[in-house]
């Protein structure tokens, strides 16, 4: 869009956690909160990728609205009054993270991402010291077929960051989802081994963007896998700058 922006009419003021803030039209609650140093927990959101809205950790209360809204998917409107923290929200967030631990097999003590994992960090942040729900203990595969990277379904939280980075940034769209409910899973091409994918360029973006130990480099031992995600906003910017 090259139309000149009229600051007076295109800017919006709102209130987040008792702090008056302003933003440009079209910005989401999450973006504005982060710009103003207000922390809202997220797992599926990733700056530079399309919004997914699946983890539901970023739910916030908006005055006058009976329903909670996902901060990552809610565009700011004039005069909004938002609270990002409340005992109720914290309780919901804790439950959501507990559900993620119960869903698949997270054995942090033997995980390559131990100590560098967004799910684990989130549990600490929310004060989760145990999981009240029954663990599912599903029998899941580890796809070791790629010569440099590994997909361990035991650790996947289905945030689809890998799917989106692969389709939207790398342009390969190697990854997608199959199945419904708790049986949903990440697949490569037409549900074949990653190593046999004809579309994967082996760029490694999915590995770096994956919040957990689901996507890792091969040859890493417990706690050795660290991720770099700083490349993403830069690549997004480059893409958008292209004529």
């Amino acid at each position: 869009m090259n139309t000149p922006v009229d600051i007076a009419t295109e800017s919006i003021t709102l209130r987040i956690d008792d702090k008056d803030v302003s933003c440009r039209k079209g910005e989401t609650v999450l973006q504005v909160a982060r710009e103003n140093g207000i922390d809202i927990p997220t797992l599926c959101y990733m700056e530079g990728l399309t919004v997914w809205g699946g983890c539901r950790l970023c739910m916030v209360e908006i005055a006058g609205s009976p329903k909670l809204q996902a901060a990552c998917a809610t565009v700011c409107t004039e005069g909004m009054i938002i609270s990002t923290q409340s005992p109720r929200l914290e309780n919901y967030r804790r439950m959501i993270v507990e559900l993620l631990f119960a869903e698949r097999n997270h054995v942090c003590s033997v995980c390559v991402s131990n100590g560098h994992c967004e799910l684990q960090t989130m549990a600490v942040k929310l004060g989760i010291d145990h999981v009240r729900f029954a663990y599912r203990f599903p029998h899941l595969e580890v796809d070791n077929s790629h010569d440099r990277m590994r997909m361990d379904h035991n650790r996947c939280i289905l945030c689809t960051r890998c799917v989106r980075v692969c389709a939207e940034i790398e342009g390969a769209h190697t990854k997608d989802i199959k199945g419904r409910g708790v049986l949903a899973a990440i697949i490569h091409d037409l549900d074949q081994n990653w190593g046999e994918s004809s579309t994967c360029t082996s760029c490694g973006k999915c590995v770096n963007i994956c919040p957990t130990g689901a996507l890792t480099h091969r040859g890493t031992a417990v706690g050795e896998m660290t991720k770099k995600t700083t490349f993403l906003p830069y690549l997004t910017l480059m893409r958008e700058a292209q004529p």
Partner: peptide, 14 residues
């Protein structure tokens, strides 16, 4: 962790 989550002993559960 073993008492809190099942941890490694629970890896036989699959």
């Amino acid at each position: 962790d073993c008492a809190v989550t099942g941890n490694v002993p629970a890896m036989r559960n699959y």
